[in-house]
């Protein structure tokens, strides 16, 4: 499954009401580290297909949701489970670091 694009409008439907746990990548076009981790996010979407839903939210076009979750830095990755944020990662980090958090989220 490819990375899904979420917006302020469909965030509740796509993320909060999702059956699967969701990883949301808050990003913007002007953010270098966001570009840097983009291929990592795409690989994770492929590798965890069926176990984890992977979405991206453009903070420029969708200001409401980042405000709700107090985002002050990008890239920020937030993991949602049953509508609740359960883990987050700020800044560009190695794939192995993200995978460690994914394992934790999926195991919980």
């Amino acid at each position: 499954m490819a990375v899904c694009q979420v917006t302020d409008q469909n965030f509740e439907q796509e993320v909060l009401k999702s059956e699967l746990p969701v990883l949301v990548d808050f990003w913007a076009a002007w953010c270098g580290p966001c570009r840097a981790i983009a291929p990592v996010i795409e690989e994770l979407a492929e590798e965890y297909q069926g176990k984890l839903k992977v979405c991206k939210l453009n903070v420029d076009e969708n200001p409401v949701t980042p405000g709700r979750y107090g985002i002050r830095a990008i890239p920020t990755l937030i993991f949602f489970k049953n509508g609740q944020p359960v883990e987050s990662i700020t800044g560009a980090v190695a794939k192995s670091t993200i995978e460690a958090v994914i394992s934790k989220v999926l195991a919980a």
């Binding site: 002007w30 953010c31 580290p33 966001c34 980042p66 985002i71 002050r72 830095a73 990008i74």
Partner: peptide, 8 residues
């Protein structure tokens, strides 16, 4: 990173 986070 000012370019990343400045707009917030």
């Amino acid at each position: 990173c000012a370019t990343c986070d400045g707009p917030f």
